[in-house]
Simulated assay, not measured.
Amino acid sequence: MFSEYGRDAKILIGANAVGQTFLWFSFFLLPFYLRALGYNMRAIGAFFSTQTIVGGIFFLLAGPISLRLGYRKTLLLSAFLGLTGRLLQVLAINSLVLFLGFLLVGMNMGLRQPNYNAYLSELVPEERRHEAFSKSFGLGTLFNSLGVLLAGFLPGYLTGLSLAEETAYRITFSLSLLQFVFVIPALLMVRDVVVRERKIRWEKTLVLKILKFSLPSALIGLGAGITIPFMSLYFKLRFGETLQAISWIFFFQQLAMGLGSFGLPELVKKYGPVKVITAFQGTATFLLVVFPSIETFALAGAVYVLRAILMNIIWPINSSFMMGFFRTEEKATANGIQQAFSTFMRGVGNSIGGTLFAVSLAYPFYATALLYASATALFYAFFIKHNGEKR
């Protein structure tokens, strides 16, 4: 599957995939873990907002830092920050320690993704970029599915051994530290790529390109922040289901998304990246509108899985498409700014979502659908003329 890639690209993709087991694991489990620690929905929203806003700040710093340190050292710095942050979240001695943990994980989030995307795009041939991003995403998502099952079943198993709920969730959440056990050694094994230019020429065309990618991302980030962090709790509150039952929804979501992503490059070759992205996002938006009216857990789970696949499976294509517009020294900065827009708005959305869910279990989905529809229309308008271009 990866024989055509170089050694460093294989190591990077492999370590990312295995690490993803515990990244999605922690994302899925975190709301339940915080509830077990005694925090309410508003407090959970505030913690998520802290993490995402700090992440947004470090998305802006990701490019300048990588121009000084290089992609590999920046990713290592990110990993050590994330490891420390997760450790503080596991300890959770008090609210201040937990708050510091969210701060450090936000820093990790902000530095990691722009530099991973930029680094991977430089390690693979230009003509294989869409394929490499999709394979990286697909493999990582398959490992994600295993993490979701583990997160769903281990707390119940531990409480069955007469452990207190808080202790069971804390032990389970501590496994999130394993992400860095795989990632840090891998980053020590790979070589960095050469960035010849250490300064970015901030011309008008560059700024416009970044803004065209950033504005749709900001709208999607706001919409996602309103609903996505609360989805596992939504299924529990709406249908009264157990954590184990809910985990199966997220398992099938990740499994189907991972398998489907391997075929996505063929669709892109046939129809072009812009048409594929907007078609998938548009369909996902429609499903969000009807989602709150669904009365049964099984059907709601199926619709949520389909919506999540359609919305998320195209992100590696979106990232790869974006990388084709920028020079080597611009990639991390451009991607960082784009994700900063998304992350700042996601942080705002977390607080809005906590408030809206406290009022109604339906309102957040309508708000998110409106924002997704606007983002999809903007992206199509900005980039449809580039749909057939080879970059």
Rank of each mutant, 00 (worst) to 15 (best):
V194G: 02
K199I: 08
Y271H: 11
S134K: 01
S247Q: 07
I228M: 10
L206W: 06
N350L: 03
F379P: 04
M41L: 15
A367I: 13
E241Y: 00
N16W: 07
S134E: 04
L259W: 06
I313G: 03
N144C: 05
R35G: 11
L158S: 09
L100G: 02
A284G: 15
L243R: 08
N16L: 05
A132C: 13
I313Y: 08
R191S: 14
K269A: 12
Y119C: 00
L255Q: 11
I65L: 15
I65M: 13
I337D: 01
P292W: 05
L69A: 15
I57D: 02
R307G: 06
V207L: 14
Q113S: 07
F99P: 02
L146S: 10
V274N: 09
P292A: 03
L120C: 11
Y157M: 14
R170M: 11
Q338R: 15
G258R: 08
G152D: 05
F2N: 08
G240D: 03
M257A: 12
N312G: 11
F382T: 10
S162T: 14
L81G: 11
R128H: 10
T50C: 08
L206A: 06
Q338L: 02
K10Y: 12
A308W: 12
L237I: 11
K212P: 12
P273Y: 06
G354W: 12
Y380M: 09
G282I: 05
I44N: 07
S49E: 09
L206E: 06
S162V: 10
W24A: 09
S95I: 14
L12E: 04
I277G: 12
L81M: 15
T296P: 02
S134M: 05
L75A: 10
F341Y: 06
M257H: 04
F297H: 05
F27Y: 13
V195C: 03
F59T: 00
T242I: 09
Q281K: 08
A375W: 03
P31I: 08
L61W: 09
W202S: 01
L158Q: 10
A79F: 10
